[in-house]
């Protein structure tokens, strides 16, 4: 008999699960949306900072003071102010959600207390203060972003 290799299907979504919160459509799981946004904003910030250091270091700008002078002149809708606005949106989310994640992941707080299961069987950490903080992040993020936009474009 010819040797038969048993095949299996790997069935792993891979890295796409890190950028698409809806690889699975899990009910009542906004933490997963936050996880994806946090990862995407973190990576974008790291890329932007590298590009930023490169650009501000080129002869056209030579150093911090020249850069500050340039941005203090920037007004209205220009490439520099748009970049600022874009960066502010990324940083506000990452910073706000970062505080929540520090509480949860490093201090182990805001995740509720173990319970005896009773209907409707909702896991304690999904109704603990981390969830309220998450809603607060989703509320404050657009407000602070809009405020920053106001300052960047109109002040």
């Amino acid at each position: 008999m010819a040797e038969e290799k048993t095949r299996v299907l790997e069935n792993k979504p891979g890295w796409i699960a890190s950028i698409n919160p809806w690889v699975l459509r899990i009910v009542n799981n906004p933490e997963r949306v936050a996880f994806v946004l946090h990862r995407v904003t973190g990576i974008l910030m790291a890329l932007i900072i590298m590009a930023h250091i490169y650009v501000t270091g080129t002869p056209a700008h030579t150093g911090w003071e020249a850069w500050v002078e340039e941005i203090s002149k920037a007004q209205g809708f220009s490439l520099v102010t748009l970049y600022f606005f874009f960066f502010a949106g990324i940083a506000w989310f990452h910073g706000l959600n970062g505080i929540r994640l520090l509480l949860v992941e490093f201090f182990g707080v805001c995740i509720g207390k173990p319970e005896k299961p009773k209907p409707p069987y909702l896991a304690p950490s999904l109704k603990a203060c981390q969830r309220k903080l998450l809603y607060l992040v989703f509320l404050l993020w657009p407000i602070l972003w809009a405020l920053t936009g106001y300052i960047v474009f109109f002040k």
Binding site: I26, N29, E31, R32, F35, R39, L101, V104, P114, L122
Partner: peptide
């Protein structure tokens, strides 16, 4: 772990593995 908390959201026994 990055606390996406999907484990806790799907667990049928209310184990809360994320926490």
């Amino acid at each position: 772990c990055h606390y996406a908390a999907s484990c806790s959201a799907v667990c049928p026994k209310m184990v809360d593995p994320g926490a």
